[in-house]
C-alpha cells in the first residue's frame, strides 16, 4: 500500500463554533499530543452563526495524520474536519508583508524583483519599501530569500488559507 513511516504534509480545514477557548482546544490538542503545526490560520467566516474556519498545515505519518483528524473531530465544538490534501484539488494561498531597507541600486533591484513576483508596494519611504505578496508558500519563501540580499528587515506572514476547487462547499 504505502510506506507507513513516510512523513506527509497535509492541509486540513476545520469548521468550528466560534466559542471562547475553541482555538486553545485545537492548539492544546496539537501540543499535548506532540503533533506538528507548520501553519495555522483562523478567522470567523460566517458571523450569522458564529462559525470560524481554521486551516492547519501539518505533517506526520499516515497513521498520525489519521489520528490528527480523528482527534480534531472529537472536539465538541468542531463541525467538520476536511483533509484537503486527500479530498481532491484545492487552492492554497498565503499573504506576506515584507519590509526591505536600502538605497540606490538595491532599491531598484528590489522593485524589479517585486515586479516579477507581482508583489505590490504598500508603503514607501526614502530608504524603505513594504511589499505585499500573495501566493503559494513556496513563492513567498523564494521572494523573501531574494530580498535578504537587498536589505530585508521585517517579515509578517498570514499562514496558509485553502479551499477546495469546484462547486462543492466544505
Amino acid at each position: 500500500m504505502y510506506d507507513s513511516n513516510l512523513v506527509e504534509k497535509h492541509t486540513i480545514a476545520v469548521l468550528v463554533d466560534n466559542e471562547p477557548g475553541v482555538l486553545a482546544r485545537v492548539i492544546g490538542l496539537f501540543s499535548g499530543r506532540g503533533y506538528n503545526i507548520e501553519s495555522l490560520t483562523v478567522a470567523e467566516t460566517d458571523p450569522s452563526c458564529r462559525r470560524s474556519r481554521i486551516t492547519i498545515v501539518t505533517s506526520g505519518t499516515p497513521m498520525i495524520i489519521e489520528q490528527i483528524k480523528a482527534q480534531l473531530n472529537r472536539l465538541v465544538p468542531v463541525h467538520k474536519v476536511s483533509d484537503l490534501t486527500v479530498e481532491g484539488e484545492y487552492v492554497d494561498r498565503e499573504m506576506a508583508l515584507i519590509k526591505v531597507r536600502g538605497k540606490g541600486e538595491h532599491r531598484v533591484e528590489a522593485l524589479r524583483i517585486a515586479d516579477i513576483f507581482r508583489a505590490r508596494v504598500v508603503d514607501s519611504t526614502n530608504e524603505s519599501f513594504v511589499f505585499e505578496i500573495v501566493g503559494k508558500t513556496g513563492k513567498l519563501d523564494a521572494f523573501i530569500k531574494l530580498m535578504q540580499a537587498l536589505g530585508l528587515v521585517d517579515v509578517a506572514r498570514t499562514g496558509v488559507v485553502a479551499i477546495g476547487r469546484g462547486v462543492d462547499a466544505l
Partner: peptide
C-alpha cells in the same frame, strides 16, 4: 464508538 481509538496504536 470513538474513531480516534481505531488505528491509533495498531492498524
Amino acid at each position: 464508538i470513538d474513531p480516534s481509538s481505531i488505528n491509533k496504536n495498531v492498524m
